[in-house]
Simulated scan of single mutants.
Amino acid sequence: MSIVKINAITVQADSGDELARRFAARAGAVDGQDGFEGFELLQPTDDRHTWLVVTRWRDEEAFQAWVSSSSFAHGHRSAAERAGQAPPAHVGVSSEVWSFVPAGGSSGTITS
């Protein structure tokens, strides 16, 4: 059964666009990882400053294998760091990872 991992990242009020830009810069980096099933970056549409990074995995083992891989470490370094430069300032104020398994739903596909 698939599992869903959600990284809830709280950013300063003026940092959301930068967060989105950084995710766009590494789009597709996890696509080839064994057990990876999908990714979405969700932007709040209200006064919240918490963005959600939603990933779906075949199972917990696949997720943990990615987290402990060199691909994870590489993907979480900025382009500047990969070029040997100093890292940019963090845009996240805090984050926490939530874990879920599907417990119901419909057979339709949710699209944006």
Rank of each mutant, 00 (worst) to 15 (best):
V67L: 12
S107N: 10
F36Q: 08
P87W: 10
G38R: 11
V101T: 15
L42S: 06
G32I: 10
D59P: 06
D17M: 10
T111P: 00
R56C: 01
V67I: 11
A29P: 01
P88N: 06
I9K: 10
A24C: 01
A24Y: 03
G35A: 13
I9Q: 10
E61K: 13
A73V: 02
R77Q: 12
F36P: 02
A83W: 01
L52E: 04
T55V: 04
G32F: 02
R22I: 09
V4T: 14
S15N: 12
S78N: 03
V4C: 05
K5M: 12
G105Y: 09
V4L: 02
A86R: 15
F100Y: 15
L41S: 07
A79P: 03
A62H: 06
S68T: 12
S107W: 05
Q64Y: 01
T45C: 05
E18T: 15
A8Y: 03
S99G: 07
Q12P: 04
L52N: 01
H90P: 12
S70V: 02
E96T: 14
G105V: 07
T10S: 11
T50K: 08
G75D: 05
F23M: 15
G32L: 05
D59Q: 09
S99E: 09
A8L: 11
L19A: 06
A20V: 15
A13S: 14
F72L: 00
Q43K: 15
R56F: 00
L41W: 06
S69C: 02
P88R: 13
R58F: 00
K5E: 07
R77T: 03
A20T: 11
K5F: 01
D14Y: 07
V93K: 15
P102N: 11
N7I: 04
A83R: 13
G92W: 13
A62N: 05
G108E: 11
I110F: 06
S71K: 07
